[in-house]
């Protein structure tokens, strides 16, 4: 039995790849990045080795697509860190932290990528270091710094409203 139908790849990994794209690019450009990622993946799928780690492969493609989009944004003179306005909370069910997406958008790109690839996609820092072209130690530090910054931003955002986290 060979590779599963590509539909299975989309249903198994589509949500995670979308989360990663949202973290790296913001909600708006994430959809273009997701589409480009899965279109490229579909094209290359017949050549993918059968024992390949599919999610890591998809994240690698998403990373490249995100860089293309970030470069295009730079060409249009938009600051790299700028994200579209926060989505309506209506789009975010279940009492999560909508401000996290904003906070992630405030991180320097390498921290943002390290956090997305490690915490959302579960990539080991060794793989992330290759994607980012840095040492594994630097990748790990970027992830740790990113999480610290996010935690601080979240504490700040939720304190005045004093909504309280569910206990």
């Amino acid at each position: 039995m060979g590779k599963p139908p590509f539909e299975r790849v989309v249903s198994a990994h589509g949500a995670v790849v979308l989360r990663v794209c949202r973290a790296v690019l913001g909600a708006h450009d994430a959809e273009d990045a997701w589409s480009e990622t899965f279109l490229s993946a579909l094209k290359a799928y017949p050549e993918l080795p059968e024992d390949a780690a599919v999610q890591a492969w998809l994240v690698t493609i998403a990373h490249r697509k995100a860089i293309d989009i970030l470069r295009a944004r730079q060409r249009h003179a938009l600051p790299m860190d700028e994200l579209p306005p926060r989505e309506s909370p209506l789009g975010i069910p279940g009492g999560g932290h909508p401000e996290v997406l904003d906070a992630v958008g405030q991180l320097p790109p390498k921290q943002r990528q390290a956090v997305a690839y490690h915490y959302l996609a579960g990539l080991p820092y060794k793989d992330i270091s290759e994607l980012l072209g840095v040492t594994p130690e630097a990748a790990r530090r970027a992830g740790a710094d990113g999480v610290k910054a996010l935690r601080a931003a979240l504490a700040e955002a939720s304190a005045p409203a004093s909504k309280g986290t569910s206990r």
Binding site: V10, A15, A27, F38, I92, G94, A144
Partner: peptide, 29 residues
């Protein structure tokens, strides 16, 4: 250690895009 810094559900706001988003993206794909 870094994971211990994260409260549960920290990424929930990122996790779920608007309902129907994945279906729409699938049709586009």
């Amino acid at each position: 250690d870094t994971e211990a810094l994260l409260p549960d559900g920290f990424f929930d706001g990122l996790a779920e895009p608007a309902p129907g988003t994945l279906e729409r993206l699938h049709a586009r794909l």
